[in-house]
């Protein structure tokens, strides 16, 4: 199959859905509060609605940036510790594995009690959600550093610190990057979920606010933005990782 044929086939399903949507809302008897016309969703991206949406989007993104960076730092540090040290693993692993079983959403009520509905609780949710993606992948990557490479490090009498930064970390880097990629996706989901449940700003809040006013066009417009931002973040990170780990053969970051 040629490249353009694949793209065409991939686009055919969204086009069909869009057509069905347009037909149903134009010729069918569906109230606009339930399902708006495609063109009214599109209209949200222009004029005043757009600047409001953009404002909320930026607030959500800023929360993701803060939460994700904090979660990444914690995840890489703790994953590295448990990856190289059996003592650290024995101390941390059972507790962290137990905590990991609690769904991210189930933390929201407690975090609201602790931190209110402001920024702190949003960032805490993101950290909780993204930390485990980064932690688990970092731990596995570091722990599975090939013994062969560690033997080379021992042969040349590298210090523990230099072995970590020169062998463990680069060896685990592809898997750490995978963890970061997953973590960023989860961060985005977490922030939207927490804003939907309780917030006074952010794209999730904007959606639940629009629902109260029966503005299904805004709700759908927000959903599309959330999906597109998710794809954009994932792609940006994959491109960035290609620059960070250039020794990987092509296609390794997909």
């Amino acid at each position: 199959m040629k490249h353009w044929q694949k793209i065409l086939l991939g686009l055919s399903l969204p086009a069909a859905i869009l057509l069905a949507w347009w037909l149903a809302t134009t010729y069918g008897d569906i109230p606009p509060q339930i399902l708006p016309k495609p063109q009214s969703v599109l209209a949200v991206y222009g004029g005043e609605d757009a600047s409001v949406l953009l404002g909320h989007l930026l607030i959500s993104l800023w929360r993701v940036v803060q939460g994700f960076l904090l979660a990444s730092l914690l995840g890489v540090v703790f994953g590295s510790l448990t990856g190289v040290s059996r003592v650290a693993k024995s101390i941390l692993m059972p507790t962290l594995t137990a905590i990991r079983q609690i769904p991210m959403i189930a933390w929201i009520p407690l975090l609201i009690l602790w931190c209110g509905i402001g920024e702190a609780s949003k960032i805490a949710i993101i950290v909780l959600a993204a930390f485990f993606c980064v932690f688990v992948n970092t731990h596995a990557g570091i722990a599975e550093t090939p013994e062969n490479f560690l033997e080379v490090a021992r042969l040349y009498r590298l210090s523990k610190l230099r072995t970590f930064f020169g062998v463990h970390l680069p060896s685990a880097l592809p898997q750490i990057l995978t963890g970061l990629q997953l973590g960023l996706g989860v961060s985005w989901m977490a922030v939207v979920a927490s804003e939907l449940i309780s917030a006074t700003s952010g794209i999730g809040y904007h959606m639940s606010d629009a629902r109260v006013f029966m503005r299904s066009d805004i709700v759908i417009a927000c959903m599309l933005v959330i999906g597109l931002v998710g794809i954009a973040m994932n792609t940006a990170l994959a491109l960035l990782f290609g620059l960070i780990a250039p020794w990987k053969p092509k296609g390794a970051h997909k």
């Binding site: 062969n148 680069p170 880097l173």
Partner: peptide, 9 residues
């Protein structure tokens, strides 16, 4: 070594 053990990075 038998396997070259060059560090890939």
């Amino acid at each position: 070594f038998q396997d070259h053990r060059l560090l890939p990075w």
